[in-house]
Design a protein around this nucleic acid. Sequence first.
DNA 1: ACCCCTCGAGTTCT
DNA 2: CTCGAGGGGT
Length: 713
Amino acid sequence: MTGSAGESVAAAPVSELAPDAARAEHARLVAEIEEHNRRYHVEDAPTVTDAEFDALFLRLKEIESRFPELVTPDSPTQKVGAAPATGFAKVRHLKPMLSLENAFDAAGVRDFMAGVRNFLMELRRDPSIEVAIVAEPKIDGVSASLRYEGGRFALGATRGDGLVGEDVTANLRTIADVPDRLEGEDVPKLFEVRGEVYMLREDFRALNEAQRAEDKAAFANPRNAAAGSLRQLDPSVTAGRPLRFFAYAWGEASAVPGRTHWEMLERLAAWGLPTNPRAKLCADIDEALAYYERIAEERSRIPYDIDGVVYKIDRLDLQEALGFVSRRPRWAVAHKFPAEQVETRLLAIEIQVGRTGALTPVARLEPVTVGGVVVSNATLHNEDEIARKDVRIGDTVVVQRAGDVIPQVVRVVKAKRPADARPFEYPDRCPACDSLAVREEGEAVRRCTGGLVCPAQQVERLKHFVSRAAFDIDGLGEKQIAAFYDDGLIAKPGDLFRLAARDGEHGAPLRDREGWGEVSARNLFAAIEARRRIPLDRFIYALGIRHVGQATARLLARTYGTLDAFRAAMDAARAREGEAWEHLLSIDGIGKVVAGAILDFFDEPHNRAVVDDLAREVEVEPVEEPGAESAIGGKTVVFTGTLETMTRLEAKARAEALGAKVAGSVSRRTDYVVAGPGAGSKAAKARDLGVTVLDEREWLALIGGREMEEPNA
DNA sequence: ACCCCTCGAGTTCT
DNA sequence: CTCGAGGGGT
C-alpha cells in the first residue's frame, strides 16, 4: 500500500499534471484502489470510507480522461460493476488459446483427414507423406495457461475468451500437479504451458459430501467443481480442493520444444509437468480410430470425466503448413462421444418475445439430469419445428445437450404419448402486448408487430444495449432492467446515463430498492460511468438494428469513421438513391436487405431521437485511421476465389488493419486482386484492365508473412 | 438459378 | 450450438 487516500486526492489539478507525473500517479492510484478493492471484497474489511474510496476513483478517472493512453483493460475503471467476479485481473495470452473443430463420428474424422491431405497436396507437398497422429483423451475440465519465466512459474490464467483470461496464478500455485519450477537444461527462458485443470470423480464425490455436511451448495459435476474451485478469490480455499492438472500443448515459447508434438509431450514430462499417460502416438488415422474405440470402452473406468478424444497431427512442420481457419487449427480435431440422451415429459410450450419481435417457442420440461446438468427448458426454434417433430404437450420426449451445451428436443417417443396429449396452437398475437404477430412469406419466424409499444421488445432491446459486446454494463441483469423499465426509470438507452443524477426522482433512490444497497448502487453507477466513452462499432452494434450484428457494425464503423459521418450518411441515404445510398451498397458485405434494414431504422423518428439523445450522453470514439506505412497502406484490394489459409473476411480484416481498402469489385482504381483457386470473372477482368493479380502466397509475402499463426494450440 | 460461406438471432445453465 | 437468411460468386 502506498500513501493514504488523503495524500493522493490533495494532489495538483489534473489539468496541470505533466505526462510523467500523471503516469506515476496513475500507477499509484491503480495499486491503491486494487488494494482497497481486495480488502473490501476478499477480506470484507475495508480500511477507508466509501467517500474516500470514491474520491480515489474519481481522481483516477479524471487522469484517465485527460491521458487516455493510460487506460488499460485491467485498470479498475474498466472493470467496475461485477464487483465479486472482478477480483481477478485480466491477462492477455501471449498466443491466443484456440478452440477445436469437433467431429461427432468416424466419418467426420475421416473428413478431417481428407482435408489435411488435400491441403498438404495443394501446398505441393508429397501426398504420400506419413501423417502420424497423437491421440489423447479430451478431459472435461477447465483449460488454463501457465507461463514459466526462467523456468519458474510466473503467471497462470484461465482461457477466458481465448485472447484475454483471468489471472488465477495464486490458485494454480496451490495445485500439487503444477510445478513451481521446470527442471532440466533445455527449459526455454519463456514458456507458456497449456493444459486442463480437472478433478477426479472420486474426489468430486468426497468434496460434495463435505459441502453438504457444511450446508453448502453441492456442485453439479466435476467440471463445475473444478471451475468453481479455480475461481476462488481466496487461494486458501482452492488449496483445500483436490484439483489436478494435465499439460497437453504450449503457447508462446522462446524455444520450440521438439520437432513433433509427441517429442514436445515427452519434453514437458521430463521438465516435471504431468502429461496424460493414456496419450498415444498413432501411425495413421485407422489406429487413431481404434484408440477412440478403446477409450470409449474404458471410459467408465477412467477416474476422471472425458468427453471425447483429441487428434493432433504429430509433425510440427506440417502443423505450421496447415495453419488455421478462423481461430481453429486445421491440424487438430476433437472426436466427441455421442451426447447423452434422456427421456422426460414436456409439460408446456411457452412463447418468448425477442428483441426483433421474433416469437420463439420454448419447451418446459420435467427437470432431468442430462450430461451432469439439470435441464428444464429447451428451445423448439419455431412453428415448423414443432410440426416437423410433431411435438405435443404431455408427450414424452428425448432430450440431449447439443455440443454438450444447449439442450434440444431430439424426438418424441410416440409409443408413450398419452391419450390427452394436445397439439400446440401457435398464437397469432404477441403474448406480451397482444399486437398481431405475422409471418412473412417464406420466413420461418413469426414476429410481433407491436414494435415500440411492445414492452417485451423494449426490455430485450435494453438488454441487448447493455450486453457484453455492446455497452458492456455489468450489474444490470434481465430482472433489474425489466423492473427499471416497469417503474419508468429507463425507457431508452440514454436514460441509463442519467440514472445516477436523477436517482430518487422516480420513487425511492436505488440503494433503497429491494435487492439493492449502498454498494451495489454505487457499483452500478460506476459501471455505467465507465462506459461514457465507447468505440463507434460498439455504439452501432448496441442500437440493435436488424441484420446489424457485431461484424456488420464493425464494417460500418470502419467505413464511416465517426458517428457524425455515419449519422449524416444514413440521413442522406434515406432517399434510397444518390451517392450516399450507392456508397452504403458498395460496402462489401452489405446488400439491399441489410442497407434497407438500417435505413428503416433511421426512418423511424423515435429511433433518430434515441440515437441523438444517446450521443449527447456519451463520447463516441472514432475508428482510428490505420497506419499507411505498410506495403499495402492506402491501396485498394479485391479478394476473389476461395482463399486457403484464411477466410475472406479474415483476409479483409487483415488488409484493412494494414491500411488497405477492400473493395468488392474490380475496376481501374483497384491496385491488387488476390485470387484463390477457382477464381473466375474477376481475375479475368483484372488481367484485362492490367491490374496486378496475386496468388495467396504472393499476397502473404507482400504483407509480411502469416504472423497470426502460433506453433500450437 | 444455383452453391457456399458468414453472419445474425435466439437459446441454456452455472 | 444451431438454424435461417443474406451476400457474393459462378
